[in-house]
């Protein structure tokens, strides 16, 4: 009995699909939507889950043999590894200094551009160009500009200042690289902030004028609170971006091409790459990846909680 009922149900579903054009449309739409999900599952989610597995194993990239489970050994080794600790500290410096710098400069440029009426397009293009220029090319140009015999040191000497080692100094190199990254990201942040500024109703500023607010007060009491969603978005995107792209710049700008001098510019991503593809230790590299994953997750949650504040017009 029940079987036949089910059959009937099924039959009716196929019946519907066959006869009802609306169902056909829906079916088509769902199938189209599922394809990217399958792709995403295969390319992103499953490998991510697999990484957790690899992180608990002694896994040499070149060996096809068995990969024995070693428990938390990889994690313990990492936390005893001073280079890894250094890379985490560096990554934090990259994020804190880099993201704050990016937001500040992006906002300043956006506010300035918001004020002018002429040549707006021209300036937007100028500020946006670095963002669409090859990172590798930019990195090498910076290296040449900043080398001991480079143009910046020439200028310093002509001003009577001592020449600086810049990228060859364990104290300065990381900030030089962050500077280059900020410079490159200003254009992107500018666009986000310009969009945010367009959305602030003009009447609020008029009301503030009537109340006799100073420009400083208007900025802090009106502009900043209303830009909050943009700031949160920029900060989250900027952070993730910084973690990801701190690879290319570091590889191309650091003196030895691998996060030097003395690991002063190495990031977690660069170190993961070295572990996996230079030392072939996939177990350690995966463990480091898991730590990085948790790190990004924690940071994003933190930003969502702390930076998001409700606001009302």
């Amino acid at each position: 009995m029940s079987q036949s009922v089910e059959k009937k149900k099924k039959a009716s579903f196929f019946q519907k699909v066959r006869t009802n054009y609306r169902y056909q449309q829906l079916l088509f739409v769902y199938i189209c939507l599922i394809l990217p999900i399958l792709f995403y599952l295969g390319i992103r989610i499953l490998p991510t889950l697999f990484t957790f597995n690899v992180g608990f194993r002694d896994w040499n990239l070149l060996s096809s043999g068995p990969h024995p489970l070693v428990g938390l050994d990889n994690y313990i080794a990492l936390f005893k590894d001073e280079v890894f600790i250094k890379s985490i500290v560096n990554t934090l410096i990259y994020i804190v200094v880099g993201v704050i710098g990016q937001l500040a400069f992006g906002m300043i440029v956006a506010l300035l551009l918001h004020r002018i009426n002429k040549f707006v397009g021209f300036f937007r293009v100028i500020y946006f160009i670095p963002y669409v220029t090859s990172i590798v090319a930019i990195s090498w140009v910076f290296q040449w500009i900043l080398m001991k015999n480079g143009i910046i040191n020439d200028i310093l000497i002509n001003l009577g200042l001592p020449p600086q080692p810049f990228l060859n100094s364990p104290d300065q190199a990381i900030y030089v690289i962050i500077g280059a990254m900020i410079w490159q990201a200003i254009g992107f942040q500018m666009v986000l902030f310009l969009a945010g500024l367009e959305n602030i109703p003009q009447m609020l500023y008029e009301a503030a004028d009537i109340d006799g607010a100073t420009p400083w007060q208007k900025f802090w009491k009106v502009t900043v609170p209303l830009l909050n969603p943009t700031i949160v978005f920029s900060a989250v995107i900027g952070t993730i971006n910084f973690i990801q792209v701190s690879f290319t710049q570091v590889i191309n700008m650091s003196m030895d091409g691998s996060g030097g001098p003395l690991h002063s510019t190495i990031t977690v991503v660069v170190y993961i790459y070295q572990l996996a593809f230079r030392q072939f230790d996939l177990g350690l590299a995966s463990a480091a990846t898991v730590i990085l994953f948790l790190f990004i997750l924690g940071l994003t949650l933190f930003q969502m909680k702390v930076l998001t504040r409700k606001f009302d017009y």
Binding site: N168, P170, D256, S258, L262, H263, Q274, R278, Q279
Partner: peptide, 20 residues
């Protein structure tokens, strides 16, 4: 036994003297 690492150790030793 590990070309990358051995190279890095020499670079680091030089940098420690020269920079630190």
């Amino acid at each position: 036994v590990d070309e990358t690492k051995e190279r890095e150790l020499v670079i680091d030793a030089a940098n420690k003297v020269l920079l630190e």
